[in-house]
C-alpha cells in the first residue's frame, strides 16, 4: 500500500555530473534558478534551454526521469498559467464576457510555464545525480559558514541523514500497523473527512510511539559509539573540490553572465 513511495530519486549511472562534488551541484542549481529569474526575453530562455539540454546530456540519465517531477506540479503550473493568461492587462487579443486574453498575458504565461518547468527539471538533474547522503554532506559543508552565526549546521545535517535512513522503516511500520488494525475491523477507506481523520488515530498513535522508541534506542546506540556532536569529528569520506569542479564553477559563472547579458540585448 504505502510501500510504493520512494525517497530521493537517485539514478545510479557513472557520469561527470555524478562524480562532481555535491557542493558544486548545489551551487549550480542555485545559480540556474537565479538565472531563470534573470531571463526576461526569448533569447534568455533559449540560452537557459541550451544550457539545460547540455547538462541533461552530460548526466546520462534518461530524459523521461527528468519530466517525472513535472507531474507533481501540474496543477500549480495550470493555475499560474491561467492567472497570468487572464489577469495580465494590455492589448486584448481574445475576449469572452469578463475573461480576456492579452498579448502580454500570453507572453508572461509562456515565460512563467517555462520558468517552472526548467526549475523542476533543473533540480531533478541535481537529485538524480546526487545520493541523499552526498546531498546532506554537501549542505553541511557548504553551509558550514552559518555555524558562526549560531545555526547548528552539523546537527541539522545529521538529522536529515537519520531521517533518510528511518523514513523507509517507518513507512513499512505504518503499513504493518494499518494491517493490524484492519485485522481488528478498522476501516481507513470509507466515511467522510472527519470520520477518516478519526480513523487515523489507531494508526498514528502506535506510529508515534514506535518512532519515539526508535529515537531513544538510536540515541543510546549513537552515544555508545562515542557520538558527541560535530566537534572533533573526522570524516570517512571528506568532500574535496577537484579539477572538474573548478571547471564547472567557471562555466556556471560564464552562463550566469550570459543570461544577464541577454537582458541588455533585447
Amino acid at each position: 500500500m504505502l510501500r510504493e513511495i520512494t525517497l530521493g530519486q537517485y539514478y545510479p549511472v557513472d557520469s561527470v555530473l555524478h562524480r562532481m562534488d555535491p557542493r558544486t551541484k548545489l551551487l549550480g542549481t542555485l545559480l540556474f534558478i537565479i538565472s531563470l529569474f534573470c531571463a526576461n526575453s526569448w533569447l534568455g530562455y533559449l540560452t537557459a534551454a541550451v544550457f539545460l539540454a547540455i547538462t541533461i546530456r552530460l548526466s546520462r540519465v534518461p530524459f523521461r526521469f527528468m519530466v517525472r517531477g513535472l507531474k507533481a506540479i501540474l496543477i500549480l503550473l495550470l493555475i499560474s498559467v491561467s492567472f497570468n493568461l487572464f489577469l495580465t492587462s494590455g492589448e486584448v487579443v481574445w475576449q469572452l464576457g469578463i475573461l480576456k486574453i492579452t498579448r502580454e498575458g500570453i507572453r508572461t504565461a509562456i515565460f512563467m510555464a517555462l520558468r517552472l518547468i526548467f526549475l523542476v527539471i533543473g533540480s531533478s538533474v541535481m537529485t538524480l545525480t546526487t545520493t541523499p547522503n552526498e546531498l546532506t554532506d554537501g549542505l553541511e559543508k557548504g553551509l558550514g559558514f552559518l555555524n558562526k552565526v549560531g545555526v547548528p549546521v552539523h546537527e541539522v545535517a545529521m538529522m536529515m541523514s537519520i531521517a533518510l535512513r528511518f523514513i523507509p522503516i517507518l513507512i513499512e511500520e505504518a503499513d504493518k500497523i494499518m494491517k493490524a488494525q484492519m485485522a481488528r475491523g478498522a476501516d481507513f477507506e470509507s466515511g467522510n473527512l472527519i470520520q477518516r481523520a478519526k480513523s487515523m488515530v489507531p494508526l498514528l498513535v502506535p506510529l508515534f510511539i514506535s518512532a519515539f522508541r526508535r529515537a531513544t534506542d538510536l540515541a543510546m546506540a549513537m552515544e555508545a559509539r562515542c557520538y558527541h556532536g560535530g566537534e572533533g569529528r573526522t570524516k570517512m569520506k571528506p568532500l574535496c573540490y577537484r579539477k572538474r569542479d573548478r571547471i564547472a564553477q567557471v562555466i556556471l559563472t560564464g552562463y550566469l553572465c550570459l543570461i544577464i547579458g541577454t537582458r541588455f540585448i533585447a
Binding site: 511500520e173 500497523i177 494491517k179 493490524a180 484492519m182 485485522a183 475491523g185 489507531p202 502506535p206 514506535s210
Partner: peptide, 20 residues
C-alpha cells in the same frame, strides 16, 4: 470482508506495537 476479518483473527508479529 469485514465479517471475514472478525471470524479469522490475525495476530501480527510484535502485536503490542498496535496498542494505542
Amino acid at each position: 470482508m469485514k465479517g471475514l476479518r472478525s471470524k479469522v483473527g490475525l495476530v501480527f508479529q510484535y502485536p503490542e506495537h498496535q496498542l494505542f
